[in-house]
């Protein structure tokens, strides 16, 4: 090896393992974090707090889709299955057996991960669009089952019993939305931290590799099917957490809404808009689309129910025209490339 090459290797080894974001990005991040923590004290109306709780829950849901689709490249159209499982697990355990929703949360994650194995093992070994089609159909099948299942209230669903004592044990706060806000923020923080770690781990790299080139990934020793199922399990567990918090927040289970294909598709739209495969893209997408949906409902009322979907469509079109990987990928690429660094 020539001398200059040895020098360059030395320089390369001295570089940080992970590129540091530019100062302005760190500053922006710190400001956003401060704003998120202070939010309920700045915006004290019930509506503005409700809006932010929804944004946070959707940010978590979109990130769950991002893990299976953005990282491992498998387009799931059945995320609502796990949203519903999370909602039902916590509510059924609470309503029928008095079990705290915290346990329900864990049970929901476990059941969702198991459901992901059951769905993923037969479908994820197929290449092409089979996985997307299968998840979409299984999703509507699961919805029908829950709509007919008398034990869990069939089509009319279930109510979460009102409990005024020990609010943190029962996850019910009847006087303020602020605790719900911080619960949602905490869930998002943990979820995003997990994905941040995942993206820098062996598993994360392997998922990205098999997403880009499955054959090359296999030639490097990566068990393709097993890794896809693993990504789907993590995604399902995350989605389930959002389902649990959502159900304990709205206090009612409606299979029509919880298992709807609309939920599966909206988390896709958010992620694609914000930046599929990036860490913050799903949050950005949620922060754009949730207010769009809520405000269009306010402005146009019941007649404008689908206006938000039209707006979504236009936004996605714009993303596709400008850049196929979403808004944030532009930024992330610049940081990762370190082109501007000395």
């Amino acid at each position: 090896m020539s001398g200059s090459r040895t020098d360059m290797l030395k320089t390369a080894r001295a570089e940080p393992l992970w590129p540091r974001p530019p100062l302005w990005v760190s500053a922006l991040g710190a400001a956003a974090l401060a704003l998120l923590i202070a939010y309920p004290f700045i915006f004290t109306t019930s509506f503005s707090q409700h809006l932010m709780i929804l944004i946070l829950l959707y940010a978590l849901m979109a990130q769950s889709w991002n893990v299976v689709a953005g990282l491992s490249g498998q387009i799931s159209l059945g995320q609502a299955i796990f949203f519903g499982i999370g909602a039902y697990s916590s509510t059924v355990l609470f309503a029928k057996y008095g079990v705290t929703p915290w346990v329900g949360l864990m049970v929901g994650m476990l059941l969702s991960a198991l459901a992901a194995v059951a769905i993923g093992v037969p479908t994820l070994r197929l290449r092409g669009h089979y996985f997307a089609i299968a998840t979409l159909l299984i999703g509507s099948g699961v919805q029908i089952v829950f709509q007919r299942w008398d034990w869990v209230g069939a089509a009319s669903g279930l109510y979460v019993p009102i409990e005024r004592a020990s609010p943190w044990f029962y996850l019910q706060f009847h006087t303020s939305k602020v605790p719900y806000y911080y619960l949602a923020l905490g869930a998002v923080a943990i979820g995003y931290l997990v994905v941040w770690k995942l993206r820098r781990s062996r598993l994360g790299f392997r998922l990205q590799a098999l997403r880009d080139e499955p054959d090359a990934a296999a030639s490097l020793g990566i068990a393709i099917a097993r890794h896809k199922v693993l990504a789907f399990m993590i995604s399902a567990a995350m989605m389930s957490v959002a389902g649990t918090f959502y159900a304990q927040y709205v206090l009612v289970l409606d299979p029509e809404r919880l298992f709807s294909a609309e939920i599966s598709i909206i988390v896709l739209l958010m992620t694609v808009l914000g930046g599929s495969g990036t860490l913050w893209g799903p949050a950005l997408g949620a922060a754009i689309l949730v207010p769009l949906s809520e405000y269009s409902r306010i402005w146009f009322g019941g007649t404008g129910r689908t206006i938000d979907l039209i707006l979504y469509g236009i936004l996605i079109l714009l993303v596709c025209m400008w850049r196929t990987s979403g808004i944030l990928s532009l930024l992330e690429e610049r940081i990762r490339r370190r082109a501007e660094m000395p």
Partner: peptide
């Protein structure tokens, strides 16, 4: 992947780089 783990590597005639990863990240895999 099992054959690969036994110590057999290969390259492809039709190249298959992980296009969304950097050069270093490709080799890290």
């Amino acid at each position: 992947d099992r054959i690969s783990r036994l110590g057999v590597a290969r390259t492809f005639q039709k190249l298959k780089p992980f296009i969304d990863l950097t050069v270093t990240e490709n080799v890290i895999v």
